[in-house]
Write a protein that binds this DNA or RNA. Structure first.
Lengths: 327, 327
DNA sequence: CGATCGTCTGAATAATCATTCGGCATGTAT
DNA sequence: ATACATGCCGAATGATTATTCAGACGATCG
């Protein structure tokens, strides 16, 4: 009588617990086992489908917004994550990461080479990817590390996590993101280890990137960019940044000394990747987004609802045909 | 935003909890409320049917046994409650009470007058009756109280509970079950209060009774019947007892002094009730059952599986037509 | 035969969840 | 206006559930 995992027994336990509303202790007395076992039997019953819990679908996305975004900007895929008003940026990131994971996952085919940037939103997202280790990806770090104090948001960590969850290997770009001297930077780029990674980046099938702005950038935050450099970039028309590359309103990389001191995927490489997914949370990236889209830097977008709305509001009237229509 | 009980919000919470497997604390952070509120929202979601939990039916009854019982003994309804082997009598009672409640409930029409005995199994059962107070029953105590120390199994208590759960009023039989002197007994019976109850008993539409035996009876257990009386009853052929009335193998009340010292429904009254349900747990009541059935004392039977099997095994071969066939 | 796993168990414990409680806000009658 | 309900909230708390742990049992293999 012990060791009885028959469906009938599971049904009895499940019924007493869920239908009749007994506690596990009462069920335990009924079935002559310990409460611990009841807990396990119930878990098993769920697994076997004897107990099923269905939840009316919560629709985490704003499809209608998405359609307008996709049509307006010629995006391959647009995902707008619902958000109740009055959420702070940390909450937005959480939402975008949580509910964006599934659609992003769907955009990554098995055996892809994935170029991956870091950032808090991306960090949040990869931790919600399903932990099925079946995609055999090659995840490649798309930008050097911002500073030596490793934190959980670095591309390094995030990439490792992604490769681990979806299955596959991770290729680290073992170099700083910013090198004060062009000469040293070039020497690093020439290193076999770094060059190899760069080549993989050129062959990536998918890229997952965040978008920075001049005023809200990891580089400014961490002091990599000082006031002088910031002014210089501003003068050069920088409105956004992706993987360490600053670009102007038309999506062209800004020609400042910064350009030659960065280690990371080049914008021409990025443009060549068939599926570049930008992951954005917050409404303050509108200009950067518009520029990146018009410059062909990104193909798909995952963003929170207010951000999506801001983007649509800021875009020129929808009358003129979108720049890169996709029927 | 507080005070938001929209379905959408409930769906969000329910989804995070049940589908995504977050704890209530995590959901709470997500939704910007306290864990306490999440617990309440989830409860509300179940109530509203946003979350539904379905359990594959557990079949608590042995239909095939029931069919054989009903056919063999001409019972109106037979209910055999499944039981795993090796259960003790307390467990059997619990099972019979728990799963017998629904079929018994189904046998009691609204506005019935119900004659009710006490006993542990019946006690267990009434506590599993649905607490819908909608039947407007008149529950009548069918036998006096066994002793003055009121306990939870007394008809008194049990009847009160039944009336309360199904809805209706309870008529107590405020008298001892056993009176040492016939004279006093008769005086009591003549009391307006007692007589009124007795009249109700005569008009009952349903009776719910347990079955005792000489060796296993509340009266013996509590010392109401002494050794001499027991011998006397035995000599008179007593094989069972219902509501304080001892009967012989043919279901006729034993003519001993005991008969005139008991306060409770008379067997002729019981026979006249259209639906008498016997509630039995355990396999040691077979003889009493056979007698009660053949004497027309009971019409329906709720019993545990081993008890049912014992009954079938003990009954004379099924070849000869049943005594009281019902096509 | 032991030895060595692996699996299963319930007691103890850690983690999680439901409920109580007092405070606060809003509505309502006085 | 002021008292008095009523309802909702989250912190604290009490109750329940999941997990850890050490021991028991049985299968498998040398």
């Amino acid at each position: 009588m012990p060791n009885d995992y028959s469906d009938d027994r599971l049904r009895l336990v499940a019924r007493l617990y869920y239908v009749d509303g007994l506690g596990q202790n009462e069920v335990a007395k009924f079935a002559k086992v310990s409460q611990a076992k009841v807990s396990r039997l119930l878990a098993l019953a769920k697994e076997r489908g004897i107990v099923r819990i269905t939840v009316a679908d919560y629709e985490p996305r704003r499809r209608e917004l998405e359609d307008r975004l996709a049509a307006r900007f010629g995006l391959h895929t647009a995902v707008a994550i619902k958000a109740s008003e009055g959420l702070e940026s940390a909450d937005l990131r959480r939402s975008v990461g949580h509910f964006g994971a599934a659609p992003v996952d769907a955009l990554i085919p098995p055996r892809s080479v994935v170029a991956l940037a870091g950032g808090r939103t991306i960090h949040e997202l990869v931790h919600h990817l399903p932990a099925v280790r079946t995609k055999s990806l090659t995840v490649v770090q798309a930008m050097g590390s911002v500073d030596s104090s490793v934190n959980a948001f670095d591309a390094q960590e995030v990439g490792r996590t992604m490769a681990q969850r979806l299955g596959g290997s991770f290729l680290a770009l073992n170099a700083p993101a910013f090198i004060p001297e062009k000469r040293t930077r070039d020497a690093l780029l020439a290193l076999e280890q770094v060059r190899g990674v760069h080549e993989h980046l050129g062959r990536a099938g998918v890229a997952l990137v965040g978008l920075g702005t001049l005023s809200n950038s990891v580089f400014v935050e961490r002091g990599t960019i000082d006031a002088a450099m910031a002014r210089e970039l501003e003068r050069a028309g920088a409105v956004g940044e992706v993987c360490g590359r600053f670009f102007d309103a038309r999506g062209r990389e800004c020609a400042t000394p910064w350009r030659d001191r960065v280690i990371g995927i080049r914008l021409d490489q990025l443009r060549a990747i068939p599926q570049v997914i930008a992951l954005v949370s917050g409404s303050d990236r509108t200009a950067a987004l518009l520029a990146a889209i018009s410059g062909g830097l990104i193909k798909s977008l995952v963003i929170d609802e207010p951000g999506a709305a801001a983007l649509l509001a800021a875009a020129p009237a929808p009358k003129p045909a979108p720049k890169r229509p996709r029927p």
